[in-house]
Simulated assay, not measured.
Amino acid sequence: MLKELLESKGVKQKWLANKIGVSQVSVSNWVKGKSEPSLKNYQKISELLEIPLKELTQQ
């Protein structure tokens, strides 16, 4: 879901990584489903992408 959100918002993984304070590899792993962001990072993504946290965390 994160990949689609980034594309729909026109956001690059590198931008998101810089804004959250994580590596681009971390964001890439989230996008690929290899790992999940922490709750704190989910909250930051929610704020940055202007999407409700509940919607972001639904699978």
Rank of each mutant, 00 (worst) to 15 (best):
K34M: 10
K44M: 05
Q13G: 07
S46T: 13
L39R: 06
K32D: 12
I20A: 02
L48N: 05
Q13N: 10
K14N: 11
N18F: 08
P52D: 09
L2E: 03
Q43P: 04
L2H: 03
S46W: 08
K40R: 15
L5H: 09
N29W: 11
L53T: 09
K9T: 05
V31D: 04
V22C: 06
K34E: 11
I45R: 02
S46V: 12
S35N: 12
E50F: 07
K54E: 15
Q43R: 13
E4W: 08
K40C: 08
S8I: 12
V31C: 07
K44F: 01
S28H: 07
G21D: 00
V22P: 03
K34W: 06
K40D: 15
V22Y: 02
L2T: 06
L56A: 05
L53W: 06
E47F: 10
S26H: 09
V31Q: 02
Y42E: 08
K14D: 13
V27N: 03
K44W: 01
S23H: 03
S38E: 04
K9E: 06
V22N: 01
L5R: 11
N41Y: 07
V11P: 01
S38P: 03
E4N: 14
K54Y: 14
L2M: 07
S8F: 14
S23M: 02
S28Y: 04
L39H: 00
